[in-house]
Design a protein around this nucleic acid. Sequence first.
RNA 1: CGCGGGGUAGAGCAGCUUGGUAGCUCGUCGGGCUCAUAACCCGGAGGUCACAGGUUCAAAUCCUGUUCCCGCAA
Length: 310
Amino acid sequence: MKIVFMGTPDFAVPSIKALYDAGHDIQAVFCQPDKPKGRGYKLVPPPVKVFALDKDIPIYQPKSLKNGGEEFIKVIEDLAPDCIVVAAYGKILPKAVLDIPRLGCVNVHGSLLPKYRGAGPIQWAVLNDEKTTGITTMLMGEGLDTGDMLLKCETEIGENETAAELFDRLADMGAELIVETLDKLEKGEISPVPQNEEEATYAPMLTKDLSPIDFTKSARAVHKQICGLSDWPCASTTIGGKRIKVYRSEIVAGSTTKAAGTVVNVKDLTIACGDGMVKLTEIQAEGSKRMATADYLRGKPVAEGTVLGE
RNA sequence: CGCGGGGUAGAGCAGCUUGGUAGCUCGUCGGGCUCAUAACCCGGAGGUCACAGGUUCAAAUCCUGUUCCCGCAA
């Protein structure tokens, strides 16, 4: 099948790879322009571009497909793909593009639609302590993740699973599902199902405003905040006035009478919460790298009675 | 040239300002105590202090260059 692939970040790589390995003819790849990233603002190509370069697939990185993107639309028209596959591309596709492929534009989305439409479905599912989430493939409409659904695949969210880990798992699941979706779509074996607008929720991109930990919340809420924000932007707090980021935690059974935020156990950084306790298991100090809490404590022991976040 | 921190024993750090025998916590090895232990006590091994050059009687420490890593910001 002739496919134009649109996607940008790591999440999209397993999908394009799976399509490539399945023998589809990937005519072209569209991704976001290279962006200045990291130290020194070096221009970094998005992961999908790296893959495309490796496979000698033509790459297009338009700033926009709407304004001034006509030439790119023409490129797609000339390629006349059977299908356009979109995975975390990061741009809205105009109707002029949506109408080109014979089979339509198929999107791989990291949630069980209609819940968690938007840019941050995976992280928000973790933050909200969902028991399960999954992948939905859909025919793209003009709205944001509003198209008719094709196939779904569900998975449980682990008790201590971070958004980053779930992200990787869902990326792989999405890859499998997109291949299956195209296969069945071509054979006419799928009946698109409209989304129930009543149940729709929106999962916006995460911001650092979500980072500070409020230990007066329940241990479970704190724990899920830590999981959901890892690896980025990360839950944060302070030890002795210095900021630390928390990558992993575990809920500790039992209760304490200590005030929220107090270190209950200086050996493993168990912290009192509004209800219950959490153990911070992987953290990162300013200017340092992330490491297991045990390693951190060897170099920078925490005094008895220390209160985090002060 | 966006701002900043750092490379010291297997791990995490201190020491550098005010040059003068390499230190802490943990791990590891051996021994001891104990019914027992991630407990405690005693002892040992393990480091060209990132690399190169300079200053000096003497450099982990001061100066210069190189390189690698990381945080912020995007």
